[in-house]
Nucleic acid binder design. Structure first.
Lengths: 203, 203
DNA sequence: AGAAAATTACCTACCGGTAGGTATAGTATG
DNA sequence: CATACTATACCTACCGGTAGGTAATTTTCT
């Protein structure tokens, strides 16, 4: 009983290749800017194969987004298992996210582009979910710090926005201006935000 | 005789209408997602009119970006004429930017989408210029504060990134999740960043 | 066990429709 | 009459999607 076809079969199957190729192309040129012809050509399959596995260009697109959301869910679940003080845990959050993005660069790039840009003819999809998941995670970490008396009790919401804003910004920089990017910057900005900018706050 | 447009011609001319319509559509659906047919139809002109004033879809696109950059240049020049302490001037910066965006919502939306997303088949254009202009302005404001002994001397660059990150983030929210947006948030976040998050930093 | 039927996984060739862009012929005004 | 502007009609290339077929595997029936 064969497990798969021709036991060797080292190359990923057509479905897998289509997903990977589509992620790359959508990330690079956007949804409307990428034709199914390009995708199937670069994936080395024929057009109906795409329509066989996903039933349309939109179906392929949505399958990719499904993968992405599961990745984020798993990642954040892992982060929330961490222990330590607020700053440490926020840094863990950032590092894991950063590492996750490094492993799926183009997937993140694609999401990022669609999250902040026009739909480009792509099917309706609520991209704010990724944002909400992040805010929720930061909120939980911060609340643990409030309970432990480590950080100010006030304005947990505001802090979540502040933290996410600088993480988001650094990831954005990394994406858009990699030559100016610096993986250490979020850590510095987080410390800066913790200590305050004003003179006399040197701690 | 045909009653076309009478001498007065109070309505914006075709060129103007094309620009406005294109901004709206590019903002809403992206560059690749918008066809020249849609643009000319909605602008109430025929296709060759577009090719007469701008010589291609790309030409129209670049003309819009030219307008946008001049708007930003003028706005930042005005902000740098302001006086006061660092926080006040940063708030002025934010408020002017926010007001400017309010007056040209779709123009900003279009830039924002292209700045953080894939080119969508749009002609090459360095969108990082907008970012650089902002960083420069914040930097100048902050340096004035350092000279006046108002803020920490260290890490002027980092502060510029911190400030821009939260302004950017709030504008992004305003764009992407207006229901969660709050024009007052940047002001609160700026104050929070100035004072620090850590307990004992209450000022 | 072995033939028949169904399912899986892919192909070539082509569809109607629309994309960006243009050739040509006007009209209005200085 | 020349320049600026606008309309009709049309071009080719490419778009997303499909019709119809096939080779190979798996399932069902006897």
């Amino acid at each position: 009983m064969k497990i798969k076809k021709t036991a060797g079969s080292p190359e990923p199957n057509a479905r897998e290749r289509l997903l990977e190729t589509a992620i790359d192309l959508f990330a690079e040129k956007g949804y409307a800017g990428t034709s199914v012809r390009e995708i199937v050509e670069q994936a080395g399959v024929s057009k109906p194969v795409l329509y066989y596995y996903f039933k349309s260009k939109e179906g392929l697109f949505l399958a990719i987004l499904d993968i992405a959301e599961n990745l984020q869910k798993d990642l954040l679940a892992g982060v929330l298992n961490s222990t330590g003080n607020v700053l440490d845990r926020l840094l863990i959050l950032y590092r894991r996210v950063y590492a996750g993005i490094g492993e799926n660069r183009n997937l993140y790039k694609m999401i990022h582009g669609l999250r902040s840009g026009p739909p480009q003819g792509a099917p309706g999809y609520d991209f704010t979910r990724y944002h909400r998941h992040m805010i929720n995670a930061i909120h939980k970490i911060y609340e643990a710090g409030v309970d432990g008396g480590e950080v100010k009790k006030t304005a947990a919401d505001e802090v979540a926005y502040l933290v996410l804003s600088l993480i988001d910004f650094c990831l954005h920089m990394d994406q858009v201006q990699p030559q100016l990017s610096d993986p250490q910057r979020p850590e510095r900005l987080l410390r800066l935000a913790f200590q305050g900018i004003k003179k006399g706050m040197e701690n």
